[in-house]
Amino acid sequence: MTVKVFVDMDKCQHYGQCCFEASDVFELDEDGKLQYVAEADESRRDDIESAADVCPMQAISVE
């Protein structure tokens, strides 16, 4: 089982709050743009859900 992560980049404002919840999945690059991995191990689900919860723009969906 894997967790599928999708960030709506039209909504994302690159605040990077998600990075503090799941730093192995979400990261701001040197230019301050959000980078993320689209698929993560099931064991990471709770932290990824937390990242989606704390996104100010509510741009993250998790499947």
Binding site: H14, Y15, G16, C19, F20, L28, D29, E30, D31, G32
Partner: peptide, 10 residues
């Protein structure tokens, strides 16, 4: 406009 540099402060 320096969001990506705040992590160490946090």
């Amino acid at each position: 406009d320096r969001t990506q540099e705040l992590a160490p402060y946090r």
